[in-house]
Design a binder for these strands. Structure first.
Lengths: 213, 213
DNA sequence: ATGGTTTTGTGAAAGTAATCACGAAAACTT
DNA sequence: AAGTTTTCGTGATTACTTTCACAAAACCAT
């Protein structure tokens, strides 16, 4: 196993590369250069080569990268063939969007259970995912290590404590609340309001005109 | 106007600070230290002081920061009192989540129009936002510089071209597609599948146990 | 085969961000 | 009023990330 010396910035780009390589394979392309990839995923070609180089010499000079080889390599590296089961807490609009999104297409990450409080939803399925009452969390969650949190901010902290107690190790938090977790739990934050505000701020204060990104 | 020398990493944290300061004011707290702030928003206190320092000396030694003063200062800096109008393209589940989210609460960023193709939605309102048919884009969009894109990936590229032609300057792209835009248009990408995969990857390859973040 | 072309992989440099650590100022305490 | 404590602001350091630029390898055309 490649040791944990892969930069985080690189790790975040891997799923992106993986997805595009998949597209290429469907188009029956057999080779691709870092330059082509660069244009497609909007990442500098030198950065792409550097990213790949952390895993060894995957390409051939004067040729580029073999799509199938690269794809197989990443499939292993990204644990693509080991299905990661995920639970979703909070079946509002955002939660529903996730349930309908078929992650399995490229990811081998699958939402297998959802939880909510609303009586009308309990017992139904959305996108093939069964929805349980939140009271059943303790009995139904064990075994699942990753959770998507799409509940109101006010409930985030209490829910987080519950999740941590059950043994969750990763939380994708869409709540504006900055939740507190023990040091062994990883939280990734996606704050929709902040993203929008940041975009507006950049527009006003960082006039671009010939920047690449 | 503070010149564009504020690091982008800092700019991204400003909305976060702003929101928490708002909470404090509602709690009628008058002062706050970088340490307190740090615990609440999970950003190192030195980083917070550094962030603030780009705007000048906003605090007092031995005291901390005055909540009201800081809030007023940021209100101006973040253009909080200048309402930024935003349009949303694609009223699916994700789009609906945005429409119901009341950005105005802290942001002075407001979604004023939404567009979709689905006949059943046209003419209705969600969260007070009127929904128009996408065919009316060219006549209704002018004046709006920022757009949230929550449509299927397959339509992203064509839609982007349309938006750019109308004069949009910022796109918050929730599509997995990496869209191509002229250099004066700013795109922020939020790729839900990538975020989930990245979290899973980090969990497997970056075991934490005593890391802070 | 040979020579020109393509494209990798990577040292080195540049750019960006986070963190340490401490003097100085202001605030509290007695 | 003097001493102690708090907390800022920032120079310096360290860490991380991107980009440049080029030798070396492999390809491709004749």
């Amino acid at each position: 196993m490649v040791k944990s010396k892969i930069p985080q910035a690189t790790a975040k780009r891997l799923p992106l590369y993986y997805r595009y390589l998949n597209n290429l394979q469907h188009q029956e392309k057999t080779r691709v250069s870092s330059k082509e990839l660069s244009e497609a995923v909007k990442v500098d070609s030198a950065t792409i080569r550097r990213d790949f180089s952390y895993f060894g010499a995957l390409g051939k000079k004067g040729y580029g990268y073999n799509v199938e080889y690269l794809l197989n390599f990443f499939r292993e590296t990204l644990d693509q063939d080991e299905l990661t089961e995920v639970a979703l807490i909070g079946v509002g609009n955002l939660g529903t969007a996730f349930l309908k999104y078929n992650f399995l297409k490229n990811n081998n990450t699958k939402i297998v259970k959802a939880f909510d409080t609303a009586g009308t939803k309990i017992g139904t399925e959305i996108g093939g995912v069964p929805i349980f009452h939140i009271d059943e969390l303790e009995e139904r969650l064990p075994g699942i290590k990753v959770v998507i949190l799409t509940i109101p901010a006010s409930e985030a902290e209490v829910m987080t404590e519950r999740l941590v107690k059950i043994g969750v190790e990763g939380i994708l938090n869409f709540t504006p609340a900055r939740i507190t977790v023990p040091s062994h739990v990883r939280v990734h934050h996606i704050d929709l309001a902040v993203e929008l505000q940041a975009l507006v701020y950049f527009l006003k204060h960082y006039p671009l005109e010939d920047k690449k990104e």
